[in-house]
Amino acid sequence: MRVVLNGEDREIEAATLAEALEALDYADAIVATAVNGEFVPHDQRGETTIKEGDAIEVLAPMQGG
């Protein structure tokens, strides 16, 4: 299944956002997630289904002013 991860096409096998994060090497990372522009809290990743073409944003702490 093709998804768009942080703006780039990726092929993964995953039914939920939690599975997608596992497949995309974020398993234990401290990140915040959004799917198609909507924030998905950490405790809802397991019940958030992912479908073909979904845009997944995975953000982490970064330097800022």
């Binding site: 995975v58 982490a60 002013g65």
Partner: peptide
């Protein structure tokens, strides 16, 4: 101050 940016797995 800090920010959030796209993270590479």
């Amino acid at each position: 101050t800090v920010s959030l940016r796209r993270e590479s797995g």
